[in-house]
Design a protein around this nucleic acid. Structure first.
Length: 529
DNA sequence: GCCGTTTTCGGCCCGACTGTTTTCAGTCG
């Protein structure tokens, strides 16, 4: 069980207890501990109650619950609360924009128990009859409920890839089995494990230890199996791992005799089977950026704001991992929920950075900040204070309900701020949770190019913001792309690998990856503006 | 439910935003 999975019990417990109307601070305690568990790098399995109680936010009651979860895979308190309400209530509560009060109203006054019923009730215009609900609220809820329904049964790429690896290992003696579909293409959200095989369905079931459901499962993840004979294996593989565009271009090339199918499969890895242009053009095909190319860790949070680790231990971990520099970017003052830095605490952090920099050999910490982009596009500190940072990442965190024009204007204003060096997670999306907003990316990238601002490839699996499709455009506009972990813990730093994997989808020169630079080169770049 | 202590109780983050109101409730980050 991962710490995230462990934390989820407490998040769910907090949510259903809030709906039940339990004591506010009890709920806060569960929410707080979920946050601690998620960000922790410790392995809690097998810890004694005494050891667990040393963790901040964990007392006697919660330590017992953690042990219960590990021992039984269950949490009785959670089951008790869930049993009081229709099963769909939990789904309703996890729809963004719907809190406990509204869900209770919908349930008690309209009898709505599931997201599907909710969408229907919106279409019937029934929400507007409730006190406190208007047309805008109804439309907003309808959209978010639809997003929730569409996301249900989908998984993050990062959570499925390790499972798929274990599954394929079980079939490893049979090289006529291969992963296909969205997972093979490294799309950030996938429907499960997709397999192409020359084996019989029953053989796969047996060897892969699959459940006997209609859609079989491996470790709880749905497995979609396509079978074919050996003669068709290559062409089927190409078809099931390519975008429509790539596949039709590949067929053209095959028909023209320009390439054989073996050539195509060899030359284009599944994650590169996206753009038709590459097959046709005589232009350069770049080798993908590799994990070991990344020299610096940019965009990291510490205990100064909402990270779980001190600046010193984050730096030490980067050193241990072979990185050469770190750009610490805690939250800015508006992010009160995340303990954002007030001016006096910035001074404290700078002093610590200076001190640490004198003690570490061949490693540099740069003074950065993740400054909120406020609704009007200004950054979160005075220009005077901003000028003291070596690297300002500007990101949006709130006010994401904006039309495209306003969002574009807001981002461009932030990009034009003379102290902005990197634009962080531009859409603000959280995969499977909220869609974020839709600025005109073409214009945003142009503004970055005009202002010597790099663009972030946010590698947090929940964000993966921007979509890979924009990397190539950014590259051709001459931008630097920065593969950033947005880490809040030691293990969060390893999220860089997801960014690297997705960046490889685009045909870009790895030299445009900002943190491929050495510390000295990076420092020069910072000072180039 | 946790934590710190003026140590076994009392306090616990709060401002912005939105859409609904006509002064505020709900939700979010």
């Amino acid at each position: 069980m991962t710490n995230n999975q462990l934390a989820r019990y407490f998040t769910r417990l907090a949510r259903i207890m809030e709906f039940h109307g339990e004591n506010f601070f009890k709920i806060k305690a569960y929410e707080a501990v979920a946050d601690v568990l998620k960000k922790s790098d410790l392995d809690f399995s097998g810890m004694s109650g005494e050891e667990l109680e040393k963790i901040p936010g964990v007392g006697k009651a919660i330590s017992e619950k953690i042990i219960e979860i590990y021992q039984t895979g269950n949490l009785k308190t959670l089951e008790k609360y869930l049993a009081l309400y229709p099963p769909g209530i939990e789904d309703l509560l996890s729809i963004k924009g719907l809190g406990p009060k509204k869900v209770r109203q919908l349930w008690e006054e309209l009898g709505v128990c599931t997201p599907g019923e909710l969408i229907y009730a919106c279409e019937e215009n029934r929400l507007t009859s409730l006190k406190g609900f208007g047309e805008k609220t109804q439309e907003d809820i309808k959209q978010k409920a639809a997003f929730f329904t569409a996301s249900k049964g989908l998984y993050l790429f990062s959570s499925i890839l390790p499972v798929a690896g274990r599954f394929v290992n079980l079939l490893s003696d049979h090289d006529e089995s291969v992963l296909v579909g969205d997972l093979a293409r490294r799309l950030p959200v996938v429907k499960g494990i997709e397999l192409l095989t020359t084996l019989e369905m029953e053989e796969v079931r047996l060897m892969g230890r699959l459940s006997a459901d209609e859609v079989p499962e491996f470790e709880g993840i749905p497995v979609f199996i396509s079978s074919c004979n050996k003669a068709n294996f290559d062409i089927e593989q190409l078809k099931l791992t390519s975008s429509e565009l790539f596949y039709s271009s590949a067929l053209d090339s095959l028909n023209n005799g320009h390439m054989t199918i073996k050539d195509i499969l060899k030359k284009f890895e599944p994650y590169r089977r996206e753009n038709s242009a590459h097959i046709h053009s005589k232009g350069q095909i770049y080798s993908p950026v590799a994990p070991e190319d990344i020299k610096g860790v940019i965009h990291v949070h510490t205990t100064y704001s909402d990270g779980s680790q001190s600046l010193a231990s984050m730096a030490q971990h980067c050193i241990d991992q072979g990185y050469k520099y770190l750009v610490v970017t805690d939250h800015s003052q508006s992010a009160i929920y995340a303990n954002g830095l007030l001016p006096d605490r910035i001074t404290d952090q700078w002093a610590e950075v200076d001190l640490l920099n004198t003690t570490m050999e061949d490693f540099t910490i740069f003074k950065g900040i993740e400054s909120d982009i406020l609704s009007d596009g200004t950054l979160d500190y005075s220009q005077d204070l901003l000028s003291g940072f070596e690297c300002v990442i500007a990101s949006v965190h709130s006010g994401l309900k904006m039309d495209s024009d306003k969002a574009t204007e807001r981002l461009i204003k932030a990009i034009e701020n003379p102290f902005t060096r990197i634009l962080g997670h531009p859409t603000g999306r959280l995969l499977l949770a909220r869609s974020g907003y839709s600025p005109d990316m073409e214009k945003v990238l142009d503004a970055c190019a005009a202002n010597n601002v790099a663009i972030e490839i946010n590698s947090n699996p929940w964000r993966m913001d921007l979509d890979w499709i924009w990397y190539e455009k950014a590259f051709h506009k001459g931008l630097y792309l920065s593969i950033n972990p947005d880490a809040h813990s030691l293990s969060g730093i390893s999220d860089i690998k997801w960014g690297v994997m997705v960046a490889a989808k685009a045909n870009i020169n790895p030299d445009c990856i900002l943190n491929k630079m050495s510390a000295a080169e990076f420092k020069n770049w910072l000072q180039s503006k």
